[in-house]
Design a protein around this nucleic acid. Sequence first.
DNA 1: GTTGATTTGTTCATTTTCTGAACTTAGTGT
DNA 2: ACACTAAGTTCAGAAAATGAACAAATCAAC
Lengths: 380, 380
Amino acid sequence: MNALLTSSQRQLVRIISESGPLSRTEMANLLGLSKAAMSGIARDLIDLGVLHETETVYGQGRPSVRLDLHPECAFFVGISLLEDPAPMILCDLNGKIIARQAMPLSRDPQVIAEAITEGLPSLLETHPSAKEKLSGIGIALSGFVDETQSNCVQSTLLNWQDVPLAKIIRERTGVETFIENDAKAVAVSEKLFGSAREIQSFSVVSLGDGIGCAHFIDGKLYRGNHGGAGEIAHCTIEPGGSPCRCGKRGCLDTVSSMKAIKEMSRAEGLECVSLSDIENEASTGNAAAIRILHRAGSGLGLAIANLIQINDPGLILITHVEGSFDGLFGTVVNQAIETNVLPRYAGQTPIRIKRVDGDVWARGAASIAAHNFLIGPNTN
Amino acid sequence: MNALLTSSQRQLVRIISESGPLSRTEMANLLGLSKAAMSGIARDLIDLGVLHETETVYGQGRPSVRLDLHPECAFFVGISLLEDPAPMILCDLNGKIIARQAMPLSRDPQVIAEAITEGLPSLLETHPSAKEKLSGIGIALSGFVDETQSNCVQSTLLNWQDVPLAKIIRERTGVETFIENDAKAVAVSEKLFGSAREIQSFSVVSLGDGIGCAHFIDGKLYRGNHGGAGEIAHCTIEPGGSPCRCGKRGCLDTVSSMKAIKEMSRAEGLECVSLSDIENEASTGNAAAIRILHRAGSGLGLAIANLIQINDPGLILITHVEGSFDGLFGTVVNQAIETNVLPRYAGQTPIRIKRVDGDVWARGAASIAAHNFLIGPNTN
DNA sequence: GTTGATTTGTTCATTTTCTGAACTTAGTGT
DNA sequence: ACACTAAGTTCAGAAAATGAACAAATCAAC
């Protein structure tokens, strides 16, 4: 369906998805086209059901009519391979989740493809036009993905090496499929559906059992030369520090990930299932808890400060699933960022904290499919 | 002159400047145009004197003829405001330096504009067609420059705050003028004229009295949200370390810049005018010299390792004016990079060392003008 | 109210740009 | 000398964008 759009039509879809609803005149200016050309392109896209007219904006002169993407012109399926069972969601172009189900996780690509094929019909049944308008499947996983978003180059969690997962699923289901690293998928969903819509360059730091990070640069996901951009978790934060599972020492992952915080707590004899537990201990004055949170927060703050110094992003978005960010940990993180960023910049880079729910990964996965639908593989 | 090129013509110029000489068929494929369209566009550009035919490549079938930019279709002037007197060079589209002269440095933009206007005629006289084909002036300076490459937002060295230098010079000389941060200018010249031509994403780290850094990402200079991308010099490398002139502590600048190395040497009673001096001391076993070089090298290596982890560039190009990089310092830098990069990546990111001469900044400045001529301000 | 100013969006003839197909050109391989 | 291959050209026709005139929908002012 996307293939039958002309290049101008695709450009238009792209700027609307980036800038939100726009009038025809605004779009003409943004694309450098004449009003006459715009008029035709907009009409065609409305006829195709891709665009629709929304609010009317009154000013001096004839009011302008904003055009927006029709949320139900395309549907996407997103699957997260980070949990077992693997969540599987159906959502529309606005990122609205329409249906949710789960499938068994497997390490065998063929079995995954089979499970998806089996799960699809019941998922698509939840909306009358989802089946015919299904435009892509997205998959989020922990690991490295190549630039075609088709092959998983390496995944420790899944024990994969050069697995052409997207191709296998594409062949099995007949639906366009793309895979992506978990953190990068979250960044794309924040750009497409979330709070970073209008920001061209930003970084997402996702805090969970591990620490993920991904960058948008000049409006595009930057994947890095080997797909490894954003591997902040293995920045050395404490030179000569504790050994990390990656083989080196003092990685951010050994200090500030939830996994590390839990382990350090356990070593100190503290009960810690979630961040709140140790925050509670700290608030009652437990020295060990305070020490752990301080160390973790300073580490994460330093890493983010380095990121700011190196890339000067327009926003740092910290996403977390754990309890809260208002306690000692969050405070220390913010302080550490402040003290390690060039004073000229301190406070200049907005830091936004966002608590996310269990749907992040699946929704991120769906956004990968949506992104490929909206922007397409080619950057023409 | 550039203004009269059509958008297709400009696209073609851009891909040749990025990929080097190409045959018409190759260009047609890269741009997604038909051979017929290419034929016409190429003919027009050859008639305009922008392109010319170079080697003929024999294979099966009719041989293909590579087209390249005509080096003398445009000339550029580059000026470095980093030294007094300020070097001023004339170069062609290949970055070949045709003439060199100098002008007095000033902190008054009007005086600078005046000095340039006075210096231009004699510089342009050195080549018969330079005057009529002068296509831009580029200026490199130490400080922050806005995204239009026209205003200097802030420069400590020149004691400037929001100085519209490019506009002033443009008005005074009537020539298109762009300014840029020194490190970013070097990155552009390496992409355009240097050893990073074919690499889409890379970072340049320039080591001198200070430490500069700039990134190319997906074929474009990434300036950062406030023009501050690459301010690696003020990454915290030694938490709680020595105070830096920026106001914080333990910045890379206080450990690994030539300025820092020289100061540390002096504090230890060692004579140190250039890096070679202290390298010599170290090679004779002087413990203090070894300690200083170790500390400086580890710091720089750690910072570069962080950069690799965060951005996964396709190349790190370290430029330096000082003596050599084969001694202890260079060895320690490389070791520190190795030990602080995720083992999976270690050795995957090429590190290239390049000794540069005194023309770097002026040539970098000229490349900024060339870049604006070739790519244009608009990314259409 | 009515009128004028103002800006959005449409229509249509014209121009610009690109394509497809046939063709020419300049080689290689046998 | 002969077919074979691929590069590049030509040209008629299709596609896309433009400019200018115009219709539409509002505000502001009298």
